[in-house]
Simulated assay, not measured.
Amino acid sequence: MNANSDRPYVPGKPYAEVIGDPIAQSKSPAIHNFWIAGLGIDAEYRRCHVHPDELPDYIARVRQDADWRGCNVTMPHKQAIIPLLDRLDPLARRIGAVNTVVRADDGTLTGYNTDAGGFLEPLRPHLATTHLFRMARILGTGGAARAIIAALAAENVVIVLAGRDPAKARALLDELDPGGEHHAVDIAHFAQPTDFAFDDRHGCFDVIVNASPLGMAGQPPLAFDLTHAPPGSVVYDIVTHPLDTPLLQQAHAAGLPTVDGLSMLIGQAAEAFERFFGQAPLRQDGDSELRRLLTAPSQP
């Protein structure tokens, strides 16, 4: 048994897990075990608390475990794990962060980033349309923002990245998409109302993304005045607790389309699940049953 794992070791049974510090709040076991049960796979998915100084020993151990299919990686390990792996998928290399590790039969480990694909999944119907112009206002410059910036830049979206340190925001844009005509601003820019007259947005795509923990339970509120959102903007908040954030409530009241944090969480998990277990998860009715499970009071 892994001393930091939440389940006993069952020899011969394939498993994957999520690692992080802390890890008790992770919804990944509920998501993956829901799909495992739906497909009738003889496997399981766990959570494992790995402190930063334990990461090298953890990787050395799972390399030798033929039952270990891989792991999802949460903070603070998404960048620290990279030197411990044998290969990096090109997208993970570009983003500079890994959230999924997969073990090959010979024990070699490959790092992937499924956050980018998970983030884009609910936007695909919009992005399938040809636009005259695409713009995203992204709030936050932390780890989650890296994948979001890379994903949107690859879809020819001009980005306005807002952070407490505009210099950090500028450096992030230059690192992830050096050829892009993007802009960095102080996050306070969006806190006060604006009387800016937006041009005709017909044929354009606009998205507002909260990629920060602001607005999450226990965190300071996100100060964003909706007058900064062009008409018809999609408002996307990756926060999952609470799920209906104040930003999304404002957008609902204004009649704007919204995307909540479970969309990205489930989307990135689906891509990882297929890499771990070799089958795509069953996804029906907008993941409604899984969403009910994840939002039930018993879920952390």
Rank of each mutant, 00 (worst) to 15 (best):
N2I: 00
A3K: 01
N4Q: 15
S5Q: 05
K13P: 01
Y15E: 02
A16M: 03
E17N: 06
E17R: 04
V18P: 12
G20Q: 04
G20D: 05
S26D: 02
P29K: 05
P29L: 11
I31S: 12
H32P: 11
I36M: 03
I36A: 01
G38H: 14
I41T: 15
Y45V: 10
R47L: 15
V50W: 14
H51N: 13
P52K: 11
Y58M: 01
I59R: 11
D65P: 05
A66E: 11
A66G: 09
R69G: 10
V73M: 10
T74E: 06
P76V: 14
K78W: 05
K78L: 06
A80R: 15
A80L: 15
I82H: 11
P83S: 05
L84Y: 08
L85Q: 02
D86A: 14
R87A: 14
L88I: 07
L91F: 15
A92N: 04
I95W: 13
T100K: 11
D105S: 14
D106E: 07
G107K: 12
T108C: 02
L109N: 00
T110F: 05
Y112A: 02
N113D: 03
G117N: 05
L120D: 09
E121H: 11
P122N: 08
P122R: 12
P122A: 09
P125V: 00
L132W: 00
R137H: 10
R137P: 02
G140A: 09
G140W: 05
T141M: 02
R146N: 08
R146D: 08
R146W: 08
A147W: 01
A154K: 12
A154Q: 14
A154I: 03
N156Q: 15
V157C: 05
V158D: 02
I159Q: 04
V160K: 04
G163R: 14
A167D: 12
A171R: 07
D174S: 12
E175S: 15
L176E: 09
L176F: 10
D177G: 12
D177R: 14
D177I: 10
H183N: 04
V185P: 13
D186H: 09
I187C: 13
H189C: 06
F190G: 08
A191H: 03
P193E: 01
T194D: 01
D199L: 06
D200Y: 05
D200C: 13
F205S: 10
N210D: 04
A211C: 12
S212L: 07
G215M: 06
G215D: 05
M216V: 10
M216L: 14
G218M: 06
P220A: 00
P220R: 00
T227D: 09
T227C: 04
H228G: 07
P231L: 01
I238E: 07
V239W: 06
D244M: 14
T245G: 01
P246N: 10
L248R: 13
Q249N: 10
Q250P: 00
Q250G: 02
A254P: 09
A254F: 06
L256K: 02
P257I: 01
D260P: 00
L265M: 08
I266P: 08
Q268D: 03
A270S: 13
A272P: 09
E274Q: 15
R275Q: 13
F276T: 08
G278H: 04
P281T: 00
P281I: 00
D287Y: 03
S288G: 03
R291A: 10
R291D: 12
T295R: 15
A296M: 06
P300I: 11
